[in-house]
Each structure stands twice: as C-alpha cells, then as structure tokens.
C-alpha cells in the first residue's frame, strides 16, 4: 500500500479503522501460520477425519480465500484459526502467538447474519464491545460510522426482523468490524444473498479490505467470488480436506466488477474449476 493510497483513504468512510499492514513481507512472526494442522472429529470407531495436515501462511493484510467442495472442512478450518476448536495435531500461530483459545482480535461473519433478535441494530453491532466489557461510549461513533458505510444509516433502532437478509448481513459485517480487529474471518458470508446484492457486497468488501488493510480469511464455494476478492486462493480437496493448490491472483488491489472480464480472471476461474470438475463434485 503506497502513501498516496493511504492519504486517499482518509476521505473514505472507513478511515476510522486502523490501517494494519504497510507492506506484505512474508514472515513467520506476523500473519497467520498453520503447521501440520489436522482435525479429526469423534473418538474410537466413530472417527471422522475432517482435515488432513495443512501447512500454509496468511500474510498480514492479505485477502485469503478458501474454496472447496461442500463438507471438505472449510468451516472447521475457520473455527480452528479463530481458536473455537482445538486442532487434533499441529499448531496455529497468529502473529507468533500460539492459538489455544479464542484470541479476540478477530471478527467473524457467518453465512447467517446471526443477529440477536432482542437487540436493535446498533446494540447488535456493539455486541463485541459488551462481550469484551469495553466502554460502549467510546465505540458508539465507530458503530454509527460503520453502519453509514454499509448504507444502514437510520436503521440503528430497528430490530433485526425488520431488515432484509442483505441488510442483516451488512449489520453483521459492522459487528465484526466494530472492535477494529486485525483479522476478519468470513464463512460463506454472502451465500444466503441474491446474486445482485452479492456482487454489490463483494465490491464493498473489496473496498473495505483495501482501505483498512485488514487480513481477511474468506470461505466460499463460488469460484468467481473467490477470484474477484482474493490476493490468494486456496483450493481444497474433498474430505478429508487438504490443499489442492494455492493461486496468486495478479489482478491488483483496485478491483471493480470490470475485473471479471479480465482474461487473467476468466483463466484463473477456469483453472480452479478444473480441480473440481475432474472429480465432478462441484456443489
């Protein structure tokens, strides 16, 4: 990220979020590092291996997207990295610290918005603040700015059921960002949205990532979405999930929907698709 880029970003509505990475130099001490991480559910005869031993590294400020067939352990991977599950073998390090429990400096977005139905939108966005027992007043401004950024200004006092699915999901993204975490993890965040809203959200998310430089780990089963958003795409194999390939996406950081007609884009989508077509298990 250049200096020009940063000064420009001050005018953006997301300028209140800290810029995490200045450059992305791969280093073991920063970013997310997985070494030999595997996960097996159950014990005894009922054992199901969900993930084969995985080794990969996510740099600070990288937009890292995981694609794979359904049931390949994508969501398990996300829970392992966020510390909600303990790996059966191997170690996960975030910024050089071993992950043994939820570490807090992470925002999570699931496929369902999972807003608390008894809290209005602003209180839902402030939920991480309540959970961490931080002073609400300090974060109120940011919560409002985030809602403005995703176009939910004026909906602060509404209850979740009064909003459409897409609006709820946008509120849940605000919730994941309100405590300004370094890492954002998204598990098929736009899976439940219609195609048009989904494209708009993709552009929006791409812009948020560009202006804040957050590390984003996103899980999807849409190959075009993966290529459009990612700096790197990890392709997973069928269960037990392993790494089929990791692709760099040389499309630059500034992306509009025009990028989808770029030959690099179409070529990469076709190449990734081939991984699944050979097994004919594309979902």
């Amino acid at each position: 990220m250049t200096a020009a880029m940063r000064t420009m970003s001050v005018d953006q509505p997301s300028a209140h979020l800290r810029v995490v990475s200045e450059q992305s130099t791969p280093s073991k001490a920063s970013g997310i590092n997985l070494s030999g991480v595997s996960k097996t559910y159950g014990t005894g005869d009922g054992q199901v291996q969900s993930l084969r031993p995985l080794d990969f590294h996510i740099n600070d400020g990288e937009f890292f997207v995981v694609v794979g067939p359904s049931g390949c352990g994508k969501s398990t991977l996300l829970k392992l990295i966020s510390g909600l599950l303990a790996p059966t073998s191997g170690e996960i390090h975030v910024d050089g610290n071993k992950v043994t429990e939820p570490h807090g400096d992470v925002g999570i977005v699931f496929q369902n918005a999972l807003l608390l139905p008894w809290r209005n939108i602003i209180n839902n966005v402030l939920m991480p603040i309540d959970m961490k027992n931080l002073p609400r007043a300090q974060y109120m401004d940011r919560a409002k700015q985030l809602l403005k950024m995703v176009g939910l200004e004026g909906f602060e006092k509404k209850l979740p059921w009064q909003l459409s699915g897409g609006m709820q999901q946008r509120a849940s993204i605000c919730r994941a960002l309100v405590h300004d975490p370094k890492i954002m993890m998204m598990d098929e965040p736009f899976g439940a949205l219609d195609a048009m809203t989904r494209e708009k959200m993709n552009v929006e998310l791409s812009r948020i990532q560009r202006t804040t430089g957050k590390t984003i780990l996103l899980i999807t089963h849409s190959i075009p979405e993966a290529v459009f958003l990612a700096d790197k795409v990890l392709v997973m194999t069928e269960r037990p999930g392993g790494i089929a390939a990791i692709y760099d996406v040389p499309l630059g950081r500034e992306r509009t929907l025009d990028a989808m007609s770029n030959p690099i884009f179409t070529d990469l989508v076709a190449r990734i698709r081939k991984h699944f077509m050979t097994n004919s298990t594309l979902d």
């Binding site: 909600l84 807090g104 369902n112 961490k132």
Partner: peptide, 16 residues
C-alpha cells in the same frame, strides 16, 4: 454458531 460467535468475541462464560 451464535454461541461460537460470542465466544470468539472473548466473552466470559457467564457473559455469553
């Protein structure tokens, strides 16, 4: 997932 989400926010058991 909702409980996981709250736990990932580093909420104590009682608070969650």
């Amino acid at each position: 997932d909702m409980v996981d989400l709250a736990r990932a926010m580093k909420g104590s058991r009682l608070r969650v």
